[in-house]
């Protein structure tokens, strides 16, 4: 365990080094968030009703703003990192280490995620909390939200790792990555909350693992029906755990098969 905590620490240090980048991200997010705010204000003003699909304007804003913050917090560049290290040959050095490669990557990124939680997610959360004046209830839901976010982080990692493994088979990183990104952003509810989806489409989307990344934690935080302690919180958390375990097995198997046929140029 000590070697992995060392990796986590290294990740934290690495993230701390680029403070300028963090400031730019926060600044950029502020502009981006005003864009979202204005857009949805106009959308709700045109709707004529206060509540659409069970979501009020402030619900939608909290949902989308925190989805963006979660996106920054969970963002991983495993696909890019790995394809670059395959092309340069540096991946061999990591594979030779007496550590499991996937676990190595996980703890490296975990360190960064811990850091980005404090630098981007927490400030955004506090701002949103005060701006929406009590629309976010503070109670046990915060604890469940945190548990759900950790599960989301793991689901996200396994999906990333699965996609990164594809890069062992092809050099077309850009194409693979853009497909993954567009699918995840749509089906996880990061661009439009899942409740807005047409009924039939939504049922299909809810059977996919992507909702575990943004939709589930955010609905738990907002205490929407179906996500509270009395109405199915445990089912939702259980679903996250199941997806987590399932994806872990699948992505692990795919990795084990693929790594045998890796070809590295020099290195």
């Amino acid at each position: 365990m000590r070697k992995y905590s060392a990796l986590t620490r290294a990740g934290i240090m690495q993230e701390l080094q680029f403070r300028l980048g963090t400031f730019a991200t926060i600044f950029g997010n502020l502009i981006y968030l005003t864009l979202i705010y204005n857009l949805w204000k106009a959308i709700y003003a045109s709707a004529g009703t206060e509540v659409v699909n069970g979501m009020t304007f402030s619900d939608t804003i909290i949902y989308l703003v925190l989805a963006t913050a979660l996106f920054n917090f969970l963002e991983m560049f495993i696909v890019w990192d790995m394809s670059r290290s395959i092309q340069s040959g540096a991946i061999v050095l990591d594979l030779l280490k007496p550590l499991k490669y996937r676990r190595l990557k996980f703890f490296e990124y975990f360190g960064r995620n811990v850091m980005t939680f404090f630098t981007t997610f927490l400030p955004t959360f506090i701002i949103v909390f005060f701006i929406t004046k009590g629309a976010i209830k503070i109670g046990l839901n915060i604890i469940f939200f945190m548990i759900s976010v950790v599960l989301a982080l793991m689901v996200n990692f396994y999906i990333e790792m699965f996609v990164a493994t594809i890069c062992l088979h092809t050099e077309s990183t850009w194409g693979i990555n853009i497909v993954k990104e567009s699918i995840v952003l749509l089906f996880s509810g990061a661009t439009i909350p899942l409740v807005f989806f047409p009924e039939k489409f939504r049922i299909v989307v809810e059977c996919m693992p992507f909702r575990c990344i943004y939709d589930t934690p955010l609905n738990i935080l907002l205490q929407k029906p179906g996500y509270t302690m009395d109405t199915g919180l445990w089912t939702m958390l259980g679903m996250q755990v199941v997806w987590c375990a399932g994806l872990s097995v699948v992505s692990r198997m795919f990795w084990d098969i693929s790594v045998k046929r890796i070809t590295v140029n020099g290195g």
Partner: peptide, 12 residues
């Protein structure tokens, strides 16, 4: 693959 990716982002 890249062209497919491009079509996917636009479709999404």
């Amino acid at each position: 693959i890249s062209t497919f990716g491009m079509i996917m982002t636009n479709a999404v």
